[in-house]
Structure formats: C-alpha cells, structure tokens
Design a protein around this nucleic acid. Structure first.
Lengths: 340, 340
DNA sequence: TTGTAGGCGTTATCAC
DNA sequence: GTGATAACGCCTACAA
C-alpha cells in the first residue's frame, strides 16, 4: 500500500517536439538560440516548453559536447582555511566573478578527509568540470597527480605546486616581508623582533626569510619567536615570550594580522603602548587589521585579485592558450596605518 | 604552423575492452566492482585500464543512471556571509562530512550576482546534482522557485523559506535569546540593555523578541539600540550610543559575538570594567567569543550540527523518505564564560 | 527553414 | 561468466 508519489519523468526535447508538432532538431535550435528557425515554430516551441515544463539536461549536453562549462575550485584543509584564513573568502569571490563573466559555473569542492580526496579525484576525472583552481595543495596529493594525469587545465593559488610544472598565481612573500620590515626600520626602530608562524609552509618560511633580508647583518635570531599557526592566540603567546627574552624590543613584525592582533593584546597586558613604545606591523590586510586598536600597518594581500588571476589562467587554458609555467606574482602594496 | 598539442582523446570503456579482448559489459562490471567476472578477465581488464589510462566518465554515467551522486550547497550573498558570518564555515564542513559518509560529493555554488542566479538555476536543473542545501535564501528568488518546480530534494538552513512548504533546519533564535537574557538577569543585573542587529532578518528580529520575552514588564525600549549589521564596528557604535543614553546600565545582550566584541571595546574606552561594572553576553559562540577579553558568555550555535542535519535531510529525501516540513530546530546550549 | 540519424560513454537487460 | 544491444537526452552534420 505504499503510495510514494512516483516523481514524474522530466520532460525531454522529444516531449517538446511532439507537443509543438516539430522535430527535435528544431527544438534544440530554439533552446540554444540558434538562427534559422521560423517565428511561427519558435512561438509554438516556446509555448510547448512552458507547457511540458522542459528544462535541458546538462549531463546529456556535456556528454555530447565534451565539456561542462564548469570549473572546480578545490579547498584543502578547510578546518584551518575556512575558519581562519582571512583570504580564502576573497579568493573565492574573485574567482567566481571572473568565471561568471565567462559564463562558467564555479563549483567549490572541499577536501577534509582521505575519503574526500578520492571522491573529488573521481569527480574531477569524470567530466563534471573543464578545469580546476586549487588552493593550498599538499605535497604530492592525489588531486595534484590526477590533474597532471588528465592534463586538466589547472592553476594553483597561494604557492607553487611541488614540481613547478603546473601554473600558479601567488604573491612574493619574501620580498613583501622584506619591504614592510624595511619600512618599519625606517621609522627609527632599533630592536626589531619577529613572530614567525607556520614555518612548515612556504609562506611562513618566506616571510621569515624576507625579514632576515631586510635586517641584514643586524638580524638577531634571539629576536625571532616562532609559533605554529597564523592565529590570534599564537600571537599572544609569541609576544609574551618575545617580551620576556627581549624587554627592550621596540618593533615587531608579526607573520599575519591575526598574529599581530594577538601581539597587540600581549603588549597591552604588559603595559606597552603601540606605537609609542613599540611599533607593530602585520601581514594580509585582513579584517583583523582594521579591527585592531590601533589599526595595523600591514602588507595588503590581493585576495580577490588572486582569485581572478587564477580564473583567468584557467579560462585562457580553456581557450587553448599555453599556460605560463613561470607563475604569476601579484603586487602587495604596503598599507600604513597607526600601529607603526 | 600552429602546434597546439591536440589533447588526446580520453580512453573509454570501449578502448579498455578492445585492449583486454573482452566486451564492454565485462569491463563495466569490473569498474563497478560487480560480481560474476572471472579472475582471469578481471586481471586482464585491470591491466588494460592501467595501460590505456582509463577513467570513467561521470557525465555519461549520470545520464544513464539518472543521478549524479552530488548535492549542491548554495551560498547567497557571499560578501556578508563568507567574510563575516562565523557560522558558514562550520555549516559547510558539517554538511560535507555527512554527505561524504554517504559517498555524495558536495558542490558549493556561490551566488553573487543576478547572472550567478540564473546560471546556478540552470546548473541545478541540469541533473548535475541530486539535491540541494540552501543557505540564506532571499525572498522569492529564482533558486527557490526552480527547486520547487523541479521538486528537487532540498533543505534550507538558517531560517525557513518564504512559504513553509520546503523543509529547513535552524535554531530557535527567540527562545535562545530569552534563555541567555534570563541567565544574565539571574546574575543580579538591574538595568539591562540590548544591542540589536539586523532587524530586517528573521534572526535579528527574533533575538530582540526573545530579549523582550525575558524582561517581560521590565522591558524598556529606551535600552535597546539597533545597528544594521552583525559587525564589530556596529557593536562599538551601538554601545557608545547606549552608554550615552543610559550611563547606569549594568548589563548588555549583544545580538552576536562580533557585536559584543565591539561593545567590549566601547566599554573599555568608557572606562567600565567587564564583568565588574557591566555584564555582557553575546550570541553565536564564534571565534570572537574566545578572542575577547574577558571571554564571552554566549549562546552556542551548532554550526556543524546544522550542516549535518541539513545533509541528513537531503539524504533522507534521496532515499525516498518524505521530508519533515515542520522544520528541524537544533539545541543551542548556553556557554558561560567570564564576561557576565 | 526543417527533419533525420548517428554518436557522445555508460549501464542494464537480455540471451548465450 | 560473458557478450550483444538498447536506452539515457542531447547536438549536429547532412539531406530535404
């Protein structure tokens, strides 16, 4: 006695054709806005489409066309990224904007487990996307391999892939870090420390390297404190430790704005004024920067720009152009506010 | 003289069959791990798959199977959500986890313009997803309509759809707001104000209603300040104004943790101690809550739980079960920390 | 301007 | 166990 309401079959081009009294070919032409169809036929067909409730089936279309008009956007390690990385939202939006203008659907896929890894790999292989943008890939992961194997148009954002055989867009963390440190030095600070973070990632290591570059011979390893994550609480801890070791500190470069915000907190605890006693600079120009008291001087990361550039790269590959394997580096202007 | 390296055609089941000297049917069985295939054939076929580099084509498969094993996750107004809403990440992750366990691919689609609206509507119609989870739909938007028209298994999260004919999951903002306000009253505060936010949304209006419920006859409209957004800076402004109007205030319910963080800032400016002079409570239990000084007492939003519940609802519909149109409301425990 | 028919890569239903 | 063969819904020459 089960009365599951059999979901009725979706109307096809065939149904429309019958309803309108024309052939499937003609219906197809109307659906795709092609020329050479009489006004009379068009009207009849449009009415029929409305009547039978026809909507085109993309799976069938992409099977025959051999393309899906969709581009994947893969996010790894979403726990740290989605919940903490201030840039991911901007990248996502930038990529979507560019893809959208080209009439491509961006589909964002999250990888949060090994199982996800495999499933996403299958998804990519299956023709559901024509290209892919990858954020923060891990070393030698299944996705990177599958993308290479399929020769799927692709681009990495944030940092280069393992073997620099695949195109990428990013920023130059090292020279950006160097630039802002120099600027900090320019304000007359003499004892400048750094709260380095995530040294196991390219970005973290490069920012430290840039700091070192700027200081040159005056670089003092004792003034560097490293913390595992680009996080507020890590900034608090790092600053406390740094202050213990070097109470005479008068400048700090924090590896990210979140870390800088934490440092500000610890500095306040310790009764130091900013920028009076110590100048603080961050990195990212994320929402944190404006929220701080005083607002942070920092390095602007062009998040939306990165997303757009990534999308443009994939789009170019889709048009058959050869990707630029050298990688694309975007500018990172320094934004000078009140914290230093 | 163009030498575009014609991307070579991808191998199909047919190629594998020829290579292995068997029929396509047998190859299909191997690919799908079906029984009734000899060990010998299996070995030959697996070798052939490897040799020709075969990967199954999902578009073809979903055409014939009439399903894609994918579920869409739609995010509207990403500007405010992705960049500000502290819950979106958790919802995303929770939904992905549940979908992943059921071997469904979650594909997240962003709607950031009218153009996106139309494109996503087409995408959904096209058979690329078997169901859909919708976050923060707008009144009568194209997506809601298309979902209804297609009778696509769907669920809304955050708040109910216009016509409550579609299933949803969410929390009871009103009774949660009431509960935390009562708790604040319980600490002995006598002059309690509220910084209400986003009154044009259900969530904002409901939180105010709950606050009013808790106060009953003691409710004083003069102690309510409303701000447009759930944002830090809005909290700062709101608190300043509230303090001007009611300097004798000893308790504040902020409509969100971000707002509460802003309020704390304004309170500090004004030289009031928390929780000494005034007790402050927030809403969301987002990253803000722990980041504040002192840490916020707040209402916990089960973000991941919402995502999971939404996914389970879609999954159930996919199994043919009738959705619960009444909506599913999740618990929101109060987390009591130091700010009140 | 319109209709016909072949094929996109799979799965599924049969006989063998 | 295995191999033909008919769908799935659509696009696209090509013929009319």
């Amino acid at each position: 006695m089960s009365t599951i309401p059999a979901r009725r079959r979706r109307a096809t081009i065939h149904d429309v054709a019958v309803e309108a009294g024309v052939s499937r070919g003609t219906v197809s032409r109307v659906v795709n806005d092609e020329p050479y169809v009489s006004e009379q036929a068009r009207i009849a067909i449009e009415a029929a489409i409305e009547k039978v409730g026809y909507v085109p089936n993309n799976a069938a279309r992409s099977l025959v066309m051999q393309r899906s008009q969709a581009v994947g956007f893969i996010v790894h390690e979403p726990h740290s990224l989605f919940l903490e990385d201030p840039n991911i939202g901007g990248i996502l939006l930038g990529a979507n904007t560019a893809l959208s203008s080209a009439d491509y659907q961006m589909v964002c896929l999250i990888i949060d487990s090994d199982r996800d890894n495999d499933r996403v790999a299958r998804y990519l292989s299956g023709g559901f996307v024509d290209g892919v943008i990858i954020v923060s890939a891990r070393q030698n992961d299944p996705i990177t391999r599958i993308v290479e194997k399929l020769a799927l148009p692709s681009v990495f954002v944030g940092h280069p892939p393992d073997l620099r055989q695949l195109p990428f867009v990013g920023i130059d963390n090292r020279s950006s870090a160097r630039a802002i440190t120099e600027r900090l030095i320019g304000t007359g600070r003499k004892r400048i420390g750094m709260i380095a973070a995530a040294l196991d990632r390219d970005s973290g290591a490069d920012r430290l390297a840039g700091f070192r570059d700027a200081l040159g011979p005056r670089f003092d390893p004792a003034l560097v404190e490293d913390v595992p994550l680009y996080a507020f609480s890590a900034g608090v801890d790092g600053m406390r430790r740094l202050l213990e070791r070097a109470p005479d500190l008068d400048g700090v470069f924090a590896a990210s704005d979140a870390v800088a915000a934490g440092a500000l907190e610890a500095l306040r605890e310790a009764g130091r004024s900013v920028p009076g006693d110590v100048g603080v600079v961050g990195f990212d120009d994320s929402a944190w920067a404006l929220r701080c008291q005083p607002p942070l001087s920092t390095v602007h990361q062009p998040a939306a720009g990165l997303g757009e550039a990534a999308a443009e790269s994939v789009l170019a590959q889709l048009r058959g152009e050869e990707p630029d394997l050298g990688g694309i580096l975007l500018d990172t202007p320094i934004v000078w506010r009140d914290s230093a």
